[in-house]
Design a protein around this nucleic acid. Structure first.
Lengths: 198, 198
DNA sequence: GTCTATACGCCGATAGAC
DNA sequence: GTCTATCGGCGTATAGAC
């Protein structure tokens, strides 16, 4: 995990420190504008240590990608387990993204604003990864059960994900002064009106 | 304009060729991963010519930013002039974005996927520029006239813009096999159900 | 495992001929 | 206005001591 260090006592794992620093710098300045020297400084380790834990700069980004996607996937799985219908599942996902935007903005920046393909060309676009497949699946099941209107699940997902992430983006860009939970009700109402049957 | 060269006869303006090449390369590989040598080659000019027309690499990106924003702003102005109510105006904007995604994908990539702040730090976030202000204004007027439900115009804009651009993004990433106009009706229906009163 | 020192390539930008 | 040649600096990655 990137968001919290596994070591509780004083000493921190260098690997985790490096990932934490890299996430912060990549999301703030971009991958290209972040040098190994920057990461070295922010993580308080030496160049040698970085190359001991990671083959190269790209491998750091790759590990972040893996970590964050895994964590997102776990969260969504748990949401699907705890909530039985599409309405509750989707609402919980919006809450998750809004909470993360306030509490772990770098994670959301990594998911929604970073262009992974620029430096991880072998990775598929995020839209084709597991958590996003889960989303389309929720839509599909919702349509099948009559909880969601008869529309193309792709369009339904786009409305849901696009609206939610646009709100996150506006908040991260400093356009929205109030915390996202202030907008939660309105945002959810808008999304659900778009998707609800009848 | 970036999308078409002003010269009709054989010879092309080097400046336009440079901008065209830069737009293509920036949106494909990213700003950082594009070298002056790449642009030189793609535009069939020499390094000297590039630096004759532009102060530096950043100035090329800046000119593109200016061009594209101006062009987008003009298009939206014309849409507002030709269409009188929010319903028609917003629908025309979706059509504009969907058409551009198919016909001038690099322009849409530049608007929705490029992280301008990484290399143009003095520019404000896109969300604060004129065309996006116009959007919020359309929402506000729509709410005032009762054409749009009583919701926060920011949330309304986020739903509209987020849904629309997510569809464009999915198409640009190759996730959607069919052309965007195939999805236009569904997309618009979803958006309008979210915004319509009653 | 962690460090410092350094090699080496690439890239942005300039100089100066034509 | 357009070109070629080249400089200086930065950044990734490695070598090798401890």
């Amino acid at each position: 995990m990137v968001t919290n260090s596994p070591q509780v006592n004083g000493k921190k794992e260098p690997k985790e420190e490096i990932l934490k620093a890299a996430l912060e710098l990549f999301t703030e300045k971009g991958y290209c504008n972040t040098s190994i020297a920057d990461i070295r400084q922010e993580a308080n380790v030496s160049t040698g240590t970085i190359y001991h834990y990671f083959k190269n700069k790209e491998a750091i980004a790759d590990a972040l990608f893996e970590d964050i996607l895994q964590s997102l996937n776990d969260s969504i799985k748990e949401i699907k387990r705890k909530n039985k219908n599409a309405f509750e599942q989707l609402r919980a996902i919006v809450e998750l993204f809004f909470t993360l935007t306030e509490d772990a903005p770098d994670v959301i920046r990594f998911i929604i604003t970073i262009r992974h393909q620029e430096f991880l060309p072998s990775r598929p676009p995020l839209s084709l990864t597991q958590p996003f497949q889960s989303l389309t699946q929720i839509m599909q099941e919702g349509v099948n059960k009559g909880e969601i209107r008869q529309i193309d699940p792709v369009v339904a997902s786009a409305c849901f994900y696009g609206t939610m992430t646009r709100m996150c983006q506006l908040r991260l860009e400093g356009v929205l002064q109030k915390q996202l939970d202030w907008y939660l009700l309105d945002t959810w109402t808008v999304i659900w009106r778009a998707l609800a049957p009848g």
